[in-house]
Write a protein that binds this DNA or RNA. Structure first.
Length: 112
DNA sequence: CGGTTGACCAAGT
DNA sequence: GACTTGGCCAACC
């Protein structure tokens, strides 16, 4: 499994709790400009964290990808399969402050 | 192999 | 702030 999507997931697992990254940063880390493909990959990702997050976590966190830690390059939350609202909740639960759907990249952006 | 899609980006109106 | 445009790229049909 060395598809582009898989590489995104693997990279994303490196982002520690309490930090976030952007679609653009991921693409950059993969030496590509496929910001868009990254978003697509997250949308379809089979390791969808939220499923085991809110409803009694059936899966281990090590098997999941923290898709909610990926935001837009301008600091806005961006989209999320099960609702932006839910995404924000999860981020807040990790200690990340969000203001009007915006995150302070200077504080929370993770550098690969 | 061409065409469409999308959890994007940047610049413009 | 809300749109529109053009560009980007992988995945899917």
């Amino acid at each position: 499994m060395t598809s582009f999507s898989e590489r995104c997931y693997t990279l994303l697992r490196k982002v520690p709790k309490g930090k976030v990254t952007t679609y653009k940063e991921i693409a950059k880390a993969l030496h590509s400009k496929a910001y868009r493909a990254v978003g697509s990959a997250m949308h379809k990702n089979p390791y969808f964290a939220a499923r085991g997050w809110v409803g009694g976590s059936n899966l281990k966190s090590s098997d999941l990808v923290a898709c909610h830690r990926v935001i837009n390059s301008d600091g806005s939350v961006g989209g999320f399969a099960s609702g932006q609202k839910n995404k924000i909740k999860m981020l807040r639960a990790e200690g990340i402050e969000i203001k009007d759907n915006k995150i302070d990249l200077g504080k929370y952006l993770y550098f690969f």
